[in-house]
C-alpha cells in the first residue's frame, strides 16, 4: 500500500483525510474523514462538504487560537516556512502510506506532525479503490475509485452519512458503473 499508487487528486484526498482525522484527535483514519476529504476535493451529488462536516460533528480546530495564547502567529510561521522551503505541509511528497510487514491488516498514514492508523473501514476503502483501478486498467487509483471504496460497505460511516443526507446512492453507484462499463 503506497501513496504513489493513487492519482494526484486521490493522494491529496487521502492526505487531507489524515489531516482531518488528526485534527479531530482521532487515532484512526476511517471512512468519515475520507468522505469529507473527497467531498472537498470534488463535488459529490447531494452531499456537499459542509453538510458532511456537520453530520460528522467535526470538532473545531483550535491550534491557531492556542498558539496565539503563547504569542505565536501560526499563519505567519507557516507562511515563512513555506516561503523558505517551497513546500507546503499538505504536500503529498511529505506523506507516506504503508502496510505493516508484520501486521498486514495495519495500514498507517504518516506526515508532518501526523500519524494515523486506518481503521477497518479506512483500510477497506483504500484496498477497494486500488482494486477498482486495477479492474479498470488504470495505473493509479483516482477519486472515483476512492468513492467506490467508500460505497462498498453499507455498514460504514461514509454510507450512513450519505443516507442521512438523503444523497442519491443509486445515482452515485450508476456513475461508477457507467465508467466501469
Amino acid at each position: 500500500m503506497r501513496l504513489d499508487r493513487f492519482s494526484p487528486a486521490a493522494r491529496r484526498t487521502v492526505v487531507r483525510a489524515g489531516v482531518l482525522a488528526a485534527r479531530s484527535r482521532h487515532t484512526a483514519l476511517g471512512t468519515g474523514p475520507l468522505l469529507l476529504a473527497l467531498a472537498e476535493e470534488r463535488p459529490l451529488p447531494g452531499a456537499a462538504a459542509p453538510a458532511i462536516r456537520a453530520e460528522l460533528d467535526v470538532p473545531p480546530w483550535r491550534d491557531r487560537e492556542l498558539l496565539a495564547t503563547i504569542g505565536i502567529d501560526l499563519d505567519e510561521v507557516r507562511r515563512r516556512a513555506v516561503d523558505a522551503t517551497s513546500t507546503h505541509p499538505d504536500d503529498p511528497a511529505l506523506w507516506r502510506l504503508e502496510r505493516s510487514r508484520l501486521r498486514p491488516l495495519r495500514i498507517v498514514l504518516t506526515g508532518p506532525a501526523t500519524r494515523v492508523v486506518c481503521d477497518e473501514g479506512g483500510r477497506k476503502t483504500l484496498e477497494v479503490a486500488l482494486w477498482a483501478a486495477r479492474r479498470g486498467g488504470r495505473a493509479f487509483a483516482d477519486c472515483d475509485d476512492l468513492l467506490w471504496g467508500l460505497l462498498a460497505d453499507g455498514s460504514q460511516e461514509s454510507v450512513r452519512v450519505l443516507r442521512r443526507l438523503d444523497a442519491d446512492l443509486g445515482r452515485l453507484w450508476a456513475g461508477l458503473r457507467e465508467r466501469a462499463a
Binding site: 491550534d63 498558539l67 522551503t85 505541509p89 511529505l94 506526515g111 508532518p112 506532525a113
Partner: peptide, 19 residues
C-alpha cells in the same frame, strides 16, 4: 498550547528536512 506547539515544531521539521 504546548501540544499545539509540538505539532507545529514537527511540521516545521518535516518541511526543513525535506528542503
Amino acid at each position: 498550547a504546548v501540544a499545539a506547539l509540538r505539532r507545529l515544531a514537527d511540521e516545521l521539521e518535516a518541511l526543513h528536512v525535506h528542503n
